[in-house]
Design a protein around this nucleic acid. Structure first.
Ligand SMILES: [Zn+2]
Ligand SMILES: [Zn+2]
Ligand SMILES: [Zn+2]
Ligand SMILES: [Zn+2]
Lengths: 154, 154
DNA sequence: ATTCACGATGAGAATCGTTGTCAAATGTGG
DNA sequence: CCACATTTGACAACGATTCTCATCGTGAAT
């Protein structure tokens, strides 16, 4: 059978704590970070439980989840400010951008296929101005592994 | 100093084999799959080498890379047909979509920040028509883990 | 062609995020 | 309160990716 009459998910102290921790920040955070936060604030929750609940909340559409470039799953409560990034492939410079155009497009194309409660992620990567000119001059920036600078921008 | 006069990357039999394997398919494939392909076709290449080269090619902008939902990095040679997905959060149904609007938007917004050689990834997720109506009827599809069906579409 | 310096390779160990296991604890419905 | 299905937690197991390091292959110089 595919579906079973809906017994809602049970409310537990752990689930509540995790939800609270999530809504506390507007940034994407990993399961481990959240687990650490909880532990730090005296709330004792098993790591596996954090993973399980974050997953559940994700499939229930309560949180957004994306994969960080390092391969971690990072979560963020849905309602928070929504934006995208343009990241430099060479030096890691990141710029935040927003744009109604994509938002509307995503909504429209998904709706056209009958999908509801649609959410999306989009990332752009290329060469930043500095790295672009470096390459033109024939020099190659070989993965400086420098900490990505984060540049906020509307 | 950030950059050093460019000693290009050295050509090796392994690198060539990996590049060939990549251009052979228009689909995203994982490092392990490519390694298996090579081994299958009698080309002996170390797994670590496959990883290293795929990464290098990615930072050089020769291949696209995204994270599959299972957490694997999957690679695809750049020039191949470009599209996006709308995936059902509940049953895994996936629809391929294309749209000039996003493509142009991404290009424009990145250019506005001086970025060049821009590439992007975008994924949408929501509830497919079937799962939407299921929920409305009060039934909950609890992660059937059914193999995602792939539905091509322009 | 020979030599040199250094990037590239490969085999296996080591990492580390994530998932599985299963007994104990805890909500729920009656 | 009772019977029962979920959820939790501690820890083992997994698996993709990265690291280590001895050895090899290339490009450049001689
Ligand atoms: Zn850059
Ligand atoms: Zn958006
Ligand atoms: Zn569905
Ligand atoms: Zn696109």
């Amino acid at each position: 059978m595919t579906g079973q009459a809906g017994t809602a998910r049970r409310p537990t102290r752990q689930r509540a704590a995790i939800a609270r921790a999530l809504s506390g920040s507007a940034e994407f955070r990993s399961a481990q970070e959240i687990h650490a936060d909880l532990a730090g604030s005296g709330t004792r929750v098993g790591l596996a439980t954090v993973y399980r609940n974050l997953q559940a909340m994700a499939t229930d559409g309560e949180v957004d989840v994306i994969r960080s470039p390092d391969g971690e799953s990072v979560y963020r409560s849905c309602s928070t400010d929504h934006h995208h990034h343009v990241v430099c492939r060479s030096c890691g410079l990141a710029v935040e951008v927003t744009g109604d155009a994509v938002e509307r497009w995503a909504e429209a194309v998904a709706a056209a296929h009958g999908f509801t409660q649609v959410r999306h992620t989009m990332e752009m990567e290329g060469l930043c101005p500095a790295c672009t000119s470096s390459r033109q001059r024939g020099t190659v920036v070989r993965r400086p592994t420098q900490a990505p600078r984060r540049v906020v921008d509307g």
